[in-house]
Design a protein around this nucleic acid. Structure first.
Lengths: 247, 247
DNA sequence: CGATTCGTTGACATGCTTCAAACTTCGTGG
DNA sequence: CCACGAAGTTTGAAGCATGTCAACGAATCG
């Protein structure tokens, strides 16, 4: 089933470039660098681990197609999802002092990745670019913290969908109609909510006319309201959802 | 890693070295670098901002003495605390693509800082060290996410105190008896809890004999139980707290 | 076609927030 | 030195959002 490596780089960077420049390629100024990247291309099938917490970290990755879930496991075996990565996204930067993975990553569907060796990058890339890459990850982490600390279930789900919509759209896909590659369980583990709450909230949003859901299929019908719910207006958001509900 | 970096600025690096090597100095291999660092020392008084979100970011900092709160402000003006930094901690790494601050930082008390110019570091320091610095910050962020997503109020407060205790201890201060430099409000904003919940939980811990609290003074009396409560055992932790409460 | 996983829905319990009020500490100015 | 107000902390009561438990339906897989 493994697709053979194809020869030239431009093809491989096409997808990522559509989002206005794959962060990864911005690190690679030379043609040789790109070629290295291409040779390291890799295909993962649904459920394959890209890496696991604790493993040696010698590279990070850029998603070419498909999607990836990053997570860690608590002492009890509970899972905490840290993020979902779509085409163009960089992941796998989080390594501890001894260059070990601080989280695990698994393919949510058949997924193609570009691999960036750490050694190569830290030697040839100037620090600024690395800092920016890290910054992107920190930005995401901060958003998640803010969501978990200050938003109620409605706000979290709305933010989650709104974010997905924007990311899909900026990548040339539809921002209104897409397929969720992650389960309700995954969403719950990401947002700090019980599966039941995720399900209920989606149903309620549907009843309010904000969106249409059928299993993994999502169609957003009212981006404005969704975006409003996503905003940090816990009280106001609540009231508006209630209003829509009864309408 | 090596301990031989004390030659030029022994006075200034002494405090940080007590924790087994200030992360900042690990970045600076040359004596000139250290001298630059030392010259950039800065004092902030309680309530002074070290930087604000959106400002140009040309440096990051290491706490020499005192403590710092990092936070961001939501659209409504609500505050979300991202972390507290104690002597030896690095902060101010989080900048966006255009080198602007992604968060604000304010001194919680009279505080002395070492300043590390970005420009200098990104030019002379190899990428690996930068990645490690970022990793430390990400590690903290992940812990916070995990706390917010999976722990109840008891677990959060316990984790918060346990963490502080460990950090103080590893810096040569008492890990059992210390002064909180942040208000209940700050703690609540950090842990995603209402001020009242913070206060109530502390009181309950005190009644359980786990600790002694008086305003900002904290004395931990039962590290083991505190640590157990801090673990990700929401249900179990609850029961045990209840048991102690009634005992 | 059973077995398993995933998603939905309902009923109930509860932990936390919110609202309200009292108290303490601290700063400021009279 | 005291008066006074502002800010921080604590405590109580009540309401509600979310978790938990339980059962069912739907899709997927071997």
């Amino acid at each position: 089933m493994s697709k053979e490596h194809i020869s030239i780089a431009p093809n491989y960077c096409h997808v990522c470039d559509t989002r206005g420049g794959c962060l990864g390629t911005q690190l690679l100024d030379s043609p040789e660098a790109r070629q290295q990247l291409v040779q390291a291309k890799k295909i993962n099938r649904k459920g394959d681990h890209i890496f696991r917490e604790g493993e040696d970290a010698d590279a990070f990755f850029v998603v070419r197609s498909g999607s990836v879930k990053s997570y860690l496991v608590t002492e009890e075996g509970d899972e905490q999802v840290l993020g979902f990565y779509l085409p163009g996204d960089v992941f796998g930067m989080d390594t501890d002092d001894s260059e070990a993975r601080m989280s695990s990553a698994i393919a949510l569907e058949t997924t193609s990745l570009c691999r960036f060796p750490h050694s190569y990058l830290t030697e040839t890339t100037d620090g600024n670019k690395l800092l920016k890459l890290s910054a992107e990850q920190m930005q995401r982490d901060h958003s998640l913290v803010l969501m978990l600390a200050r938003k109620d279930a409605d706000g979290r789900i709305a933010t989650f969908l709104d974010d997905l919509a924007h990311r899909y759209q900026s990548r040339g896909y539809s921002g209104s109609s897409f397929l969720l590659s992650m389960s309700r369980q995954d969403i719950g583990c990401y947002l700090g909510l019980a599966v039941e709450t995720v399900s209920r909230t989606l149903t309620r949003f549907q009843d309010s006319g904000i969106l249409q859901v059928n299993r993994r299929e999502v169609e957003i019908r009212d981006h404005d309201t969704l975006s409003e719910l996503a905003g940090n207006h816990p009280e106001k958001a609540n009231k508006e959802a209630g209003g829509l509900e009864s309408a």
